[in-house]
């Protein structure tokens, strides 16, 4: 894979992550940290995918990133947030199954990553050695 394509892949994942965060938390990620964290999660998942799937997803992400070129003259990662949101919605409502599935996959993974960041400690208990008295109500 060329360095240019790899850079496009990373930028597309970052833009996708920021867009998923913006969909769920409008105006809630002013520092951009949530988007970066979700992007890192998506990259980590991609790195661990079955080896026959990761090239496929790599190509799909590049196609997704290039898809607005004809209509808007820009890659997905170069679009404004509003345009990215409408692009994501176009894919979500597409009649082509692979486009719907693509958004479903990255959308749900991104939301899972985001909610893990926001609420992942909701249910964390300190582990106690067996038999030790638990905290009283």
């Amino acid at each position: 894979m060329s360095k240019v394509m790899l850079r496009h892949f990373e930028r597309a994942i970052s833009a996708l992550a920021e867009t998923v965060v913006a969909e769920r938390q409008p105006g809630g990620d002013t520092s951009g940290m949530l988007g970066k964290s979700v992007a890192q999660f998506l990259m980590s998942v991609h790195a661990r995918m079955p080896d026959y799937l990761s090239p496929l997803f790599y190509v799909l992400v590049l196609i997704f990133n290039a898809s607005p070129l004809l209509r808007k003259g820009k890659f997905f990662h170069q679009l404004s947030l509003g345009d990215r949101l409408s692009e994501l919605d176009t894919w979500r409502r597409s009649r082509i199954e692979v486009r719907r599935r693509f958004v479903e996959f990255y959308g749900s993974l991104g939301v899972f990553g985001l909610y893990s960041d926001l609420y992942g400690t909701d249910y964390t208990h300190d582990q106690l050695p067996t038999g030790k008295r638990a905290q009283s109500r």
Binding site: G131, R133, A134, Q135
Partner: peptide, 14 residues
Amino acid sequence: YAYATDLVTGSPGR
């Protein structure tokens, strides 16, 4: 699961 004794809430055990 080995629940903590006298569990009411909080850390559940191992």
